[in-house]
Amino acid sequence: MKSTMNGSELTLYVTGEIDHHNAARIRETADGLIQQRHPTVLRLNFAGVEFMDSSGIGLIMGRFRMMQLYGGKLRVTDIPQGLRRMMELSGLTGLDVLERSRESGDCTE
């Protein structure tokens, strides 16, 4: 998984299909980098995500807690249109971790 560090902000480019099987691998990579680099902001860039079931919600919630533990923030960015209903259903829209997308201006509609 591609990652970039910009100052104290870490961006992870999540690609492919997020299901229970793949979430484990993404979680390990993300947590390894958080523990190693102690970013103040973790950005999960979802532009390359082609499919996501509720395992993706667990993954986001888990990283949210992890970043809280380290006194940092989580942002989920570039969320494809097709994943919106899942995000809405999860209640994540109330947590202020989903970045407003450029096209429609809001993740919650």
Binding site: A23, R27, D53, S54, S55, I57, G58, L59, M61, G62, M86, L89, S90
Partner: peptide, 11 residues
Amino acid sequence: EEERAGLGFAV
């Protein structure tokens, strides 16, 4: 503890 969101049936 396994980061299951508890949303399977809701989805």
